[in-house]
């Protein structure tokens, strides 16, 4: 049995009348790369913020189970929680300028993580910071360490943020749309870099994205969210080759491809999250809608995947709500 890094069961996140996450489950093991996919409002960001207890104070959180490295995230005292973040689980963001301090040199920021989480001396921290920059593909690290974030290009800034995230030698790296704002050429290099680092270090990787194309080559498993719920989860090969949930199918079909058609258009929009529904949240847009979709489907096992859709129900199953 492999070591569990992150384990979330039946997570609910509410902001006022809005239910951002309703019963999500997510699991990342040591050395495993998991893609968490969803569009705006799917609850993917609320889920990972809750996983690190970084959610805004007005959020109300409940979960049957929410552990990071075996610690109960929701009840952990602040000092222990701070040690867990950065040291056990580090995060990289879409916009490195939100994560990097514009007033401090890149070297100071990476060294800070090293002295705080790894108790290195300032001189050792400096040496280690230079080594980290080299690992993320930044040449001339000695000069680069003395520079400020604005002196880096967008792609280089992402690399510097990755170096800072790796400084705590985390077991789990959470990447929240880390390449969205970048050119495709830079994207491709960063994806390759992160995939390589994950393998070398045996880290767990949680890749949070709206981009089904970009993550195909780097994750082992995919979790698809829609309107705060997990619609489908399964091994990457099965999910792309044989998607089971009509939403997953629609999402894959909507991708324009160089070698194929423009993609099919999924009409409509996500439901109003302030109005709870007792049925399947995707039913209003679903082409395979049936009468029993008025009742929310449970998660059914289908091969190696799990699917929240009545179409995946075993023959004869009439699960009562």
């Amino acid at each position: 049995m492999t070591e569990t890094l992150l384990d979330i069961a039946n997570l609910h996140v509410r902001f006022g009348a809005t239910t951002a996450v309703a019963g999500a489950c997510l699991h990342v093991s040591k050395g495993e790369a998991v893609g968490l996919v969803g569009e705006s409002g799917s609850g993917k960001s609320a889920t990972i913020l809750a996983a690190l207890r970084l959610h805004p104070p007005n959020a109300r959180i409940s979960a049957t189970h929410l552990t990071l490295g075996g610690h109960d995230v929701l009840t952990l005292p602040q000092p222990a929680l701070r040690r867990l973040r950065g040291r056990f689980a580090a995060m990289i963001f879409q916009d490195p300028l939100t994560a990097l301090n514009p007033l401090l040199t890149i070297g100071t920021q990476i060294a800070e993580v090293l002295t705080r989480h790894r108790a290195l001396s300032p001189a050792d921290a400096r040496r280690q910071a230079a080594a980290l920059l080299t690992q993320v593909g930044i040449t001339d690290p000695a000069r680069r360490l003395a520079q400020y974030p604005h002196e880096f290009s967008g792609g280089m800034r992402q690399r510097a943020m990755i170096a800072a995230a790796l400084a705590g030698d985390p077991a789990l790296l959470i990447a929240d749309e880390p390449t969205t704002a970048l050119d495709v050429t830079v994207q491709a290099e960063l994806v390759r870099l992160i995939a390589g680092l994950q393998r070398q270090r045996g880290m767990g990787l949680l890749w949070v994205t709206h981009d089904l194309a970009l993550m195909a080559g780097i994750v082992d498993r995919v979790v698809v969210m829609y309107a705060g719920r997990v619609m489908e989860s399964g091994p990457v090969a099965a999910l792309y080759a044989n998607p089971r949930h009509p939403y997953t199918i629609a999402l894959l079909e909507s991708l324009p491809r160089l070698d194929q058609g423009r993609g099919r258009v999924l009409a409509g929009g996500p439901p109003d999250l302030t109005r709870p529904t007792s049925g399947c949240v995707f039913a209003p847009r679903c082409s395979a809608r049936m009468p029993r979709c008025m009742q929310a489907p449970p998660m059914f096992a289908a091969g190696d995947s799990h699917v929240a859709c009545w179409l995946a129900a075993p023959a004869g199953a009439e699960v009562a709500a």
Binding site: V184, A195, A213, G217
Partner: peptide, 22 residues
């Protein structure tokens, strides 16, 4: 550099494609 929404093809390309210098 265009991402390929196919796990096997994407992995194969990542393993073989030469890096484009910055």
């Amino acid at each position: 550099a265009v991402p390929i929404p196919d796990p096997a093809l994407a992995r194969a390309r990542m393993a073989t494609a030469a890096a484009l210098p910055a």
